[in-house]
Write a protein that binds this DNA or RNA. Structure first.
Length: 159
DNA sequence: GCCAACGTTGGC
DNA sequence: GCCAACGTTGGC
């Protein structure tokens, strides 16, 4: 049976956590997602799904690398930590509102792919991240789009 | 630093 | 349940 791998894009501000930081740490808890749509995407992720690691609020913004889901969704502890920036007083221990996944480093793209390039590429027409006003921090990516971005980035990863 | 887009909150 | 006010995201 063929694997049913899915593809995603996750945004991170490189000043906060970059692809280089992920390489250094090898893997990370992707905490702090506080948007229901993004959370639902996190909960749909399966081990071995591939992720485009996108640098937002960067100069320029764009896809910097590839990561892989290595642990499926579980409760994000920071929602219960009153001292955390991500604290949510409305979330119950026995029914956690927010989830996270763990992702591991796969590669940094040989060629960073800026948002401008994504927008201008006809092969990427319809890709969510290229749409104006698209703020969702966790997005599904279609396999052909994913493969195209890997190619633009001269990646060694296979989709 | 600006501001468009869009999600959330809360008064009614 | 509507919607104005407000806060955040994130490109520019």
């Amino acid at each position: 049976m063929a694997s049913k791998r899915s593809y995603w894009l996750m945004k991170s501000e490189p000043e906060v956590f970059s692809i280089q930081a992920l390489r250094r740490d090898r893997q990370t808890h992707w905490e702090g997602v506080r948007n229901y749509q993004a959370r639902n995407h996190l909960r749909s992720m399966r081990v071995d799904d591939l992720v485009l690691f996108y640098h937002s609020n960067a100069e320029p913004p764009g896809v910097a690398g590839v990561a892989r889901v290595c642990r499926e969704a579980y409760p994000d502890d920071s929602q219960f930590d009153a001292k955390s920036h991500y604290y949510d007083a409305g979330s119950k221990r026995d029914d956690p509102r927010w989830s996270l996944v763990d992702v591991e480093f796969v590669e940094e793209l040989a060629q960073f792919v800026p948002l401008d390039v994504l927008k201008e590429d006809p092969a990427l027409e319809g890709m969510l991240v290229t749409k104006r006003g698209m703020r969702l921090s966790v997005q599904p990516v279609e396999r052909p789009h994913f493969a195209r971005v890997l190619k633009l980035g001269k990646a060694t990863t296979k989709p």
